[in-house]
Design a protein around this nucleic acid. Structure first.
Length: 268
DNA sequence: CTGGGGAGGGGGCCC
DNA sequence: AGGGCCCCCTCCCCA
């Protein structure tokens, strides 16, 4: 079943937002790709190594998340996701690895400045100087503005997405993320749009029926390597995901979650 | 209800 | 720096 609600269709180009700064050109896969596909080769059977599985991942608040953004850098107000899926407000997105959700404590610099403010002699003795670029300002507000617009942002290497509230440490990572909003890779056959070319190529296999990933145990074939990997779990006596209470193993984390939600953990 | 397949998303690593 | 690829994950559907 097509999951069209997950992707954006660019049927009407006039409705495409103007992402002039970071947008990438729309990628149209060459017709040759629709006609002939290089057959990926699996050199050897994929055997998943069992590893310790911790069913509950706890994202600690160790990593500081500096939330205040200058007005010009704040996420677009009222932006609605083009993905169709209506998401809850970002702060509730606890699954994201990019958000710790914790507020950073007052920085040393802020503390120093606050102590200055409480000490008039200190204010008189020296100008307000940026500890990063050594620029001096006659007023605290001037320094604060400078730091907010310049040095703090640079020192954090914080690149904020203008379509959501995610932040990245590099421009490259931000550009990669923005593709998930702009979806520049469009399927020539059905018009579905994807963030990356290889996602589009995987989608094209749904049209061609190509299944280059074969199971070495049962000769089933899959169009997606991840799905083959999940399938291989079904051949294993001991599955990858284990219930910490009853030790029953499952081939997928979702099945383990269902098992736990069904009351196993309560029963013990 | 459970297990599994299909389809797709996102971050990280490597070249 | 950017693209390709890999891995892990999620969601939906169906037998």
């Amino acid at each position: 079943m097509p999951r069209s609600f997950l992707v954006k269709k660019h049927f009407n180009a006039s409705k495409k937002p103007n992402y002039s700064e970071l947008d990438t050109h729309t990628v149209i896969i060459s017709p040759y790709l629709y006609e002939s596909y290089p057959m990926p080769v699996i050199p050897k059977p994929e055997i998943l190594t069992s590893r310790a599985y911790s069913p509950i991942t706890v994202w600690t608040s160790a990593a500081p998340f500096h939330s205040p953004l200058p007005g010009g850098l704040s996420p677009l107000a009222g932006y609605s996701s083009p993905l169709g899926r209506v998401s809850p407000p970002p702060p509730s997105d606890t699954s994201s690895k990019d958000h710790s959700g914790s507020e950073s404590p007052i920085s040393d610099e802020e503390e120093r400045l606050q102590s200055k403010l409480s000490d008039p002699h200190a204010i008189e003795a020296e100008k307000f100087q940026c500890n990063l670029c050594n620029k001096t300002y006659s007023t605290f507000s001037g320094l604060a503005k400078h730091k907010q617009l310049h040095c703090d942002a640079q020192s954090r290497k914080s690149f904020s997405c203008k379509y959501c509230d995610k932040e990245y440490v590099s421009l490259g990572a931000l550009k990669m993320h923005i593709r998930t909003h702009t979806l520049p890779c469009v399927c020539k056959i059905c018009g579905k749009a994807f963030s990356r070319p290889w996602l589009l190529q995987g989608h094209i296999r749904t049209h061609t029926g190509e299944k280059p990933f074969s199971c070495p145990h049962c000769n089933r074939a899959f169009a997606d390597r991840s799905n083959l990997r999940a399938h291989l779990q079904t051949h294993s006596d001991v599955k990858k995901y284990q219930c910490k209470n009853c030790s029953k193993t499952f081939s997928r984390m979702s099945l383990l979650h269902k098992h736990e939600e069904s009351g196993c953990c309560v029963a013990h």
